[in-house]
Structure formats: C-alpha cells, structure tokens
Amino acid sequence: MIKLEAINKTYQVGGSPLRALCDVSLQIEPGEYLSVMGPSGSGKSTLLNMIGLLDRPDSGRYWFDQVATEELNEERRAHLRGENIGFIFQSFHLINRLTAFENVELPMMLAGQPVKQRRSAVTDVMAMVGLSDRASHKPNQLSGGQLQRVAIARAIVMRPRLLLADEPTGNLDSHSGGEVIDVIEKLNQDGITLITVTHDQQLGDRARRHIRMVDGMIDSDHNAHIKGSNIKSSQTKISDIKSVDIDSADTEDKKSDDATI
C-alpha cells in the first residue's frame, strides 16, 4: 500500500542543514499497525508528514497504492490526501468557531460532497466515537478526550484507508488517552492502516510493528507479536465498523492551550 524508496529530506535550521530523513525505505501493507518511535529530532514527524503527503521529499520515491506521488501536482496530492489519509494531531486542531459536527464535516465539505451524504456520514462517525450527544457543542465546551475523539471522527469521516496519529495521547491524561487508543485500535481491527508516532513506550508497544528511528534513519523495524490475523484486506469499509462503546465518564479536562485553533 505504501512504498518509500530512498527518501531524503533536508531542512535548513538556523542556516545549517539538518538531515531529517536519510535514505529511508519502507514498505507498509494494508491493515498494518505501526508505531514509529525515537528521540526528538530523529525524523519521526517528518516521516509521518511524508507519508501523509504534507511534505515532499528532496529525493527518493513514494508510491501510494502504486501511484508515484512525487509526480503529482499539489492539486492531485491534496485530493489523494483528502480521500485516503486521515490525520490525528497531538493538539487536536479543531476549529473553535465550528461545532463538533461542523468540524467533522469539514473534510467532506472541502471535497464538495452533497449535504445529505455529509449529514449521514458525520452522524455515523460521531456515533462511532461515542459523541452523538455532543455534536452541536463547540470545542471549548468539550473535554480533551472528547476533543481528540472529535478529531478522530474528522479523520475517518472520508473513510480513509490510512490513519496517521502524531502523539495522539500526548495532551491527554491516561484515562482519556486509553479511550482514544481504544477507538483507533478498533478502527485498525476493522481494516484501516494505522501509523502512530509517539514518545510513549507503552503506546508504541501496543503496535504490531515497531519502527525505531535515530538521526533520520530507520534504526530497527520488527514485528512484535506476529499473529498476522488482524491484517485484513484494505477493502474493509469503515461503515462496517460498529460504534465503539466508550465509558462516557469524561472526567478528563486537561487541555493544552493550543488544543484548538
């Protein structure tokens, strides 16, 4: 599904070049559950942005579903990203002026889908993350765990096949962090390819495949518990996923200042 070949990326940091990615090659099959770990500045986030088509490599090749992405123009890349890739960020990145419902609706709106279709899809995913009753709330009326679940709903509303999570629990306490993990792992069990970038060893260990990065290179790449039974066909539709039952105690309230936009 994803094939990276000798990807290089260098940033200019304060005048001196910083090699964020150095000859990275990686292949990811549909339905995999990957964790990317490593010290700060090791290139984890760059790799994630590269896979998420937010960044372009200086050299190297990247095939997404046999599509050579480096040949696509910005327009096509945006389209590919919108259709196939969902993002979850550490600081949620919800738009404050919009309700939870409207935040989730945003990707479909950008894709120009009709209102009726949007309404049913958003209602579905809101139920899936257990927030049906919070649809009309603004982000400042929601707790951190709820915000991240709204963000997950937004990430999957377009039924992407790849979910990229950048420190998804970084701003959450352990209880709501656990809920968030439950939701995204359930999505993975139902067929979505999941890549998590994290500092959290516990979260990283939950993945089946562990990638460790050091200095822009893949230091180690191994499968933790090779059951393989969970790797399903990527044809599985999100619509098949049942609502994830979440204890809606929602006691968490730890919100970072930049939790929302």
Binding site: E75, P107, L110, I261
Partner: peptide, 18 residues
Amino acid sequence: QRRKEIGLLKAIGASSRQ
C-alpha cells in the same frame, strides 16, 4: 492568525487553490 487552521485545512484535503 489562522496559520493552524490553514495547515489543518491542507491536512484534511484542501488544495492550495481551495
């Protein structure tokens, strides 16, 4: 002021043209 929002819109599929 809306840098993050713009970044987000791009991440969820908005093209530069949009």
